[in-house]
């Protein structure tokens, strides 16, 4: 028999206390678009739903120094509507345009999408290439986990049992441009088969800095370090890009599932990477 409790902490401190007390039996409830599904599917049968939506410490999108801070309970729509992001880091808001659909975007939160740790979480690749930090809070304090080290397996993250995500910190890159390409099986509301984000710094046609991240090609969203190495310092043209992009094969370990075979994922990841880099270089020009 399912048995759930509901608790709405009145302030941040109370949230951290209750999360500490409940440990893994306390489920932060923000948008609910994942949690309610798990409850309905009965993969979670009991526990306390900790309603975190209205705590100000988990809300807001603002720029502090060189960092953009996005509260964990901010919705994807909130990100799309944020003037701060539009002005300071349009790459990130543009990346969220194909997130699920408008109904879900009004509900799903950035913290929830990250915490859920799906290999195809659509917030992950853009955050990974931005070197974003997940700010985890607990009774004993705050720590920053690099987005790239946040995931530990499909559906698993590196938060400890008493921690919650408070916010996501994104250092605003001084230079460069980025793009996020997502491949789904249909055009509206699709779960990514694979997705690629890149951030490129380009100096007189030479790539002087590059970060590449992919979703759907490994147990967790990954940074493609081999491909990054291959591309950095290179002058890219139609002739060398394919060979360089092929190095991605050393970074990815896709599986075959309902949405696509491993071979297909490999092939389209390479193609998407090429497309992403060429598009970025064009906008950089």
């Amino acid at each position: 028999m399912d048995n759930f409790k509901y608790f709405k902490p009145q302030n941040f401190k109370e949230l951290l206390n209750v999360k500490y007390d409940l440990s893994s039996a306390g489920f932060p409830l923000a948008g609910g678009s994942n949690l309610l599904i798990y409850i309905k599917e009965k993969s979670i049968r009991s526990g306390t739903l900790i309603d975190i939506t209205s705590l100000k410490e988990l809300r807001g999108i603002k720029k502090t120094g060189d960092t953009i801070e996005i509260g964990a309970a901010e919705t994807i729509s909130g990100i799309l509507e944020s003037k701060v992001l539009e002005n300071e880091l349009p790459f990130f808001s543009v990346s969220m345009r194909d997130f699920a659909n408008p109904l879900i975007r009004n509900k799903a939160t950035i913290g929830g999408n990250m915490a859920d740790a799906s290999p195809v979480a659509d917030t992950a690749p853009p955050l990974l290439v931005l070197d974003a930090k997940v700010v985890a809070a607990s009774k004993s304090g705050i720590r920053e986990i690099p987005a790239n080290e946040f995931f530990s397996g499909p559906g698993k993250n590196n938060l400890s049992k008493d921690e919650i995500i408070q916010k996501i910190n994104i250092p605003v890159p001084e230079r460069g441009s980025g793009i996020f390409l997502k491949l789904g099986q249909r055009k509206g509301t699709s779960i990514s088969v694979t997705s690629v984000a890149v951030w490129i710094v380009n100096d007189s046609n030479k790539i002087t800095g590059i970060r590449i991240s992919l979703g759907g090609v490994a147990p967790v969203p990954i940074r493609a370090v081999n491909a990054e190495k291959a591309f950095s310092g290179k002058i890219i043209d139609e002739n060398n890009i394919t060979a360089l992009a092929e190095t991605l094969k050393e970074d990815i370990k896709p599986i075959s599932d309902l949405r696509g075979s491993a071979e297909y994922r490999t092939a389209v990841s390479i193609n998407l990477l090429k497309r992403a880099i060429l598009t970025c270089l064009k906008t950089e020009e």
């Binding site: 409830l29 678009s33 309610l36």
Partner: peptide, 16 residues
């Protein structure tokens, strides 16, 4: 519509 925004009520907790 919840506070003016369209969303799915099936994934909205009533208590929220």
């Amino acid at each position: 519509l919840i506070d003016g925004k369209a969303t799915v009520s099936c994934l909205t907790s009533a208590l929220q």
